[in-house]
Amino acid sequence: MPTFPSVDWFNAVRERYNTDQTLHSGGGGPCEAKAALCIGDSVYLLEFEGFECAEILEIDRDDIDQADFFLEMPMPEWIDMINNIRENGAADLDHTLSTIDLELEDGLPRAPGDDQYRRDLFYRYNQNFQDFFDASAGIATTIGRVD
Protein backbone atom coordinates (compact mmCIF):
# COMPACT_ATOMS: atom_id res chain seq x y z
CA MET A 1 0.00 0.00 0.00
CA PRO A 2 1.77 3.20 -1.11
CA THR A 3 2.32 5.97 1.35
CA PHE A 4 1.22 9.54 0.81
CA PRO A 5 3.30 11.44 -0.05
CA SER A 6 5.75 9.41 -2.13
CA VAL A 7 6.69 8.85 -5.75
CA ASP A 8 5.09 5.40 -5.49
CA TRP A 9 1.81 6.90 -4.35
CA PHE A 10 1.77 9.49 -7.12
CA ASN A 11 2.63 6.81 -9.67
CA ALA A 12 -0.30 4.73 -8.48
CA VAL A 13 -2.57 7.75 -8.99
CA ARG A 14 -0.94 8.44 -12.33
CA GLU A 15 -1.59 4.87 -13.50
CA ARG A 16 -5.27 5.15 -12.63
CA TYR A 17 -5.64 8.64 -14.11
CA ASN A 18 -4.02 7.59 -17.39
CA THR A 19 -6.00 4.41 -17.86
CA ASP A 20 -9.50 5.22 -16.62
CA GLN A 21 -11.10 7.65 -19.03
CA THR A 22 -14.17 7.99 -16.83
CA LEU A 23 -12.00 10.03 -14.49
CA HIS A 24 -11.53 12.73 -17.10
CA SER A 25 -14.45 15.06 -16.58
CA GLY A 26 -16.34 16.64 -19.48
CA GLY A 27 -14.22 19.16 -21.28
CA GLY A 28 -11.05 18.15 -19.46
CA GLY A 29 -9.08 18.23 -22.67
CA PRO A 30 -5.33 17.97 -23.05
CA CYS A 31 -2.92 19.52 -20.62
CA GLU A 32 0.67 20.63 -21.17
CA ALA A 33 2.12 21.71 -17.88
CA LYS A 34 4.60 20.85 -15.15
CA ALA A 35 3.22 21.24 -11.66
CA ALA A 36 5.31 20.98 -8.53
CA LEU A 37 3.73 19.96 -5.23
CA CYS A 38 5.54 21.00 -2.08
CA ILE A 39 4.45 18.54 0.59
CA GLY A 40 6.36 18.66 3.84
CA ASP A 41 10.05 18.58 2.99
CA SER A 42 9.48 16.90 -0.35
CA VAL A 43 8.82 18.39 -3.76
CA TYR A 44 7.14 16.30 -6.46
CA LEU A 45 7.16 17.32 -10.09
CA LEU A 46 4.14 16.16 -12.09
CA GLU A 47 4.51 16.42 -15.84
CA PHE A 48 1.26 16.45 -17.82
CA GLU A 49 1.34 15.79 -21.56
CA GLY A 50 -1.81 15.66 -23.64
CA PHE A 51 -4.37 13.50 -21.88
CA GLU A 52 -1.89 11.85 -19.56
CA CYS A 53 0.30 12.50 -16.60
CA ALA A 54 3.56 11.46 -18.22
CA GLU A 55 6.01 11.47 -15.35
CA ILE A 56 6.39 11.95 -11.62
CA LEU A 57 9.74 12.94 -10.16
CA GLU A 58 10.90 13.92 -6.72
CA ILE A 59 13.09 16.96 -7.10
CA ASP A 60 15.18 19.22 -4.93
CA ARG A 61 13.58 22.42 -3.75
CA ASP A 62 16.33 24.29 -5.61
CA ASP A 63 15.09 22.83 -8.89
CA ILE A 64 11.56 24.09 -8.50
CA ASP A 65 11.93 26.41 -11.46
CA GLN A 66 11.56 23.30 -13.64
CA ALA A 67 7.86 23.62 -12.85
CA ASP A 68 5.44 26.05 -14.45
CA PHE A 69 3.92 26.62 -11.03
CA PHE A 70 3.98 25.04 -7.61
CA LEU A 71 1.37 24.36 -4.96
CA GLU A 72 2.38 24.55 -1.33
CA MET A 73 0.28 23.81 1.74
CA PRO A 74 0.99 22.59 5.26
CA MET A 75 1.08 18.79 5.44
CA PRO A 76 -2.19 18.49 7.45
CA GLU A 77 -4.07 20.32 4.70
CA TRP A 78 -2.74 18.01 2.02
CA ILE A 79 -3.80 15.06 4.12
CA ASP A 80 -7.22 16.58 4.76
CA MET A 81 -7.71 16.99 1.01
CA ILE A 82 -6.57 13.43 0.24
CA ASN A 83 -8.76 11.97 2.97
CA ASN A 84 -11.75 13.93 1.74
CA ILE A 85 -11.26 12.58 -1.77
CA ARG A 86 -11.02 9.02 -0.45
CA GLU A 87 -14.19 9.42 1.61
CA ASN A 88 -16.28 11.01 -1.14
CA GLY A 89 -14.88 9.46 -4.31
CA ALA A 90 -13.90 12.98 -5.39
CA ALA A 91 -13.21 16.21 -3.58
CA ASP A 92 -16.31 17.83 -2.17
CA LEU A 93 -16.78 21.53 -2.79
CA ASP A 94 -14.82 22.49 0.32
CA HIS A 95 -11.78 20.51 -0.74
CA THR A 96 -11.32 21.21 -4.44
CA LEU A 97 -8.10 22.87 -5.51
CA SER A 98 -10.22 25.80 -6.60
CA THR A 99 -11.79 26.27 -3.16
CA ILE A 100 -8.49 25.81 -1.35
CA ASP A 101 -7.01 28.41 -3.69
CA LEU A 102 -9.76 30.86 -2.81
CA GLU A 103 -9.37 30.34 0.91
CA LEU A 104 -5.70 31.24 0.93
CA GLU A 105 -5.06 34.94 1.08
CA ASP A 106 -2.43 34.86 -1.65
CA GLY A 107 -3.94 31.96 -3.54
CA LEU A 108 -2.58 28.44 -3.97
CA PRO A 109 -0.49 28.51 -7.16
CA ARG A 110 2.85 30.29 -7.30
CA ALA A 111 5.10 30.50 -10.31
CA PRO A 112 8.88 30.55 -10.16
CA GLY A 113 9.94 34.11 -10.84
CA ASP A 114 6.33 35.28 -10.42
CA ASP A 115 5.68 34.46 -14.07
CA GLN A 116 1.99 35.25 -14.41
CA TYR A 117 1.63 33.37 -17.68
CA ARG A 118 2.91 30.14 -16.11
CA ARG A 119 0.88 30.63 -12.95
CA ASP A 120 -2.30 30.94 -15.02
CA LEU A 121 -1.76 27.37 -16.25
CA PHE A 122 -3.17 26.32 -12.88
CA TYR A 123 -6.50 27.92 -13.83
CA ARG A 124 -6.36 26.82 -17.46
CA TYR A 125 -5.89 23.17 -16.52
CA ASN A 126 -7.67 23.25 -13.19
CA GLN A 127 -10.02 20.45 -14.19
CA ASN A 128 -7.15 18.20 -15.24
CA PHE A 129 -5.38 18.67 -11.91
CA GLN A 130 -8.60 18.13 -10.01
CA ASP A 131 -9.32 14.98 -12.03
CA PHE A 132 -5.80 13.77 -11.23
CA PHE A 133 -6.24 14.21 -7.49
CA ASP A 134 -9.74 12.74 -7.63
CA ALA A 135 -8.18 9.66 -9.23
CA SER A 136 -6.53 9.02 -5.85
CA ALA A 137 -9.93 8.06 -4.44
CA GLY A 138 -9.43 4.47 -5.53
CA ILE A 139 -5.87 4.13 -4.31
CA ALA A 140 -5.31 2.26 -1.07
CA THR A 141 -3.21 4.73 0.87
CA THR A 142 -1.13 4.87 3.98
CA ILE A 143 -0.79 8.38 5.26
CA GLY A 144 2.77 9.32 6.08
CA ARG A 145 3.95 11.16 9.14
CA VAL A 146 2.37 14.55 9.61
CA ASP A 147 5.43 16.25 11.11
Binding site: S25, G27, L93, Y123, N126, Q127
Partner: peptide, 28 residues
Protein backbone atom coordinates in the same frame (compact mmCIF):
# COMPACT_ATOMS: atom_id res chain seq x y z
CA UNK B 1 -13.56 30.76 -9.49
CA UNK B 2 -15.97 31.83 -6.77
CA UNK B 3 -19.07 30.61 -8.56
CA UNK B 4 -17.33 27.26 -8.92
CA UNK B 5 -16.55 27.23 -5.21
CA UNK B 6 -20.17 28.16 -4.40
CA UNK B 7 -21.80 25.84 -6.93
CA UNK B 8 -25.08 24.44 -5.62
CA UNK B 9 -24.98 21.21 -7.60
CA UNK B 10 -22.97 19.18 -10.10
CA UNK B 11 -24.46 21.04 -13.06
CA UNK B 12 -23.26 24.43 -11.86
CA UNK B 13 -19.94 22.94 -10.89
CA UNK B 14 -19.40 21.58 -14.38
CA UNK B 15 -20.45 24.85 -16.01
CA UNK B 16 -18.12 27.05 -13.98
CA UNK B 17 -15.17 24.65 -14.11
CA UNK B 18 -15.40 24.65 -17.89
CA UNK B 19 -15.85 28.42 -18.07
CA UNK B 20 -12.84 28.96 -15.81
CA UNK B 21 -10.62 26.79 -18.01
CA UNK B 22 -11.90 28.39 -21.22
CA UNK B 23 -11.56 31.93 -19.95
CA UNK B 24 -8.07 31.25 -18.59
CA UNK B 25 -7.08 30.06 -22.07
CA UNK B 26 -8.27 33.36 -23.51
CA UNK B 27 -6.30 35.16 -20.82
CA UNK B 28 -3.19 33.21 -21.80
Amino acid sequence: RLLLAHAHNAAEREIFANCLADHSRHMS
